[in-house]
């Protein structure tokens, strides 16, 4: 497991699966940290990337942009990318931006790992 203050990266939960777990608010001041973490994960070309949003209380469009960029990279690398455990407020921004259909979104980390 690697981590910084706001983002944990876990690669020992299931074979070929990397879980990125940001915490707190993902806004303009903190989304660059998430972007760096996701880019680092993509360099390892995992089979599956799970972004666990359970501990994210708020996300703005900079966070969305970060995830869209990551999804594009994932598709290019043939990495399966799944988002999980987002609260209603975070889900709302995906729906406002009509991005909830662009991503694979599931309710729990367990569902994401097995998806």
């Amino acid at each position: 497991m690697a981590s910084d203050e706001n983002i944990a990266v876990l690669d020992d939960l299931a074979e070929g699966v990397v879980v990125v777990r940001p915490t707190g608010d993902v806004d303009m001041s903190r989304s660059p940290d998430l972007r760096m973490a996701l880019r680092a994960v993509h360099e390892g070309r995992p089979m599956k990337l799970v972004v666990d949003l359970e501990q994210v209380g708020y996300m703005d469009s900079s966070g969305l942009a970060t995830l869209v960029e990551s999804m594009r990279t994932a598709k290019g690398n043939k990495t399966s990318m799944v988002l999980c455990a987002m609260n209603d407020k975070v889900r709302a921004i995906f729906e406002i931006a009509r991005l909830h259909q662009f991503f694979t979104i599931v309710d729990s980390l367990e569902d994401a790992i097995s998806a």
Binding site: S61, L64, A65, T66, V68, E69, R72, I93, I96, A97, R98, L99, F102
Partner: peptide
């Protein structure tokens, strides 16, 4: 919105 790419969502979100 159909042009899915990073960025450019702020004004849309505000108006929505």
């Amino acid at each position: 919105l159909s042009d899915i790419r990073p960025g450019g969502l702020g004004v849309h979100i505000i108006r929505e």
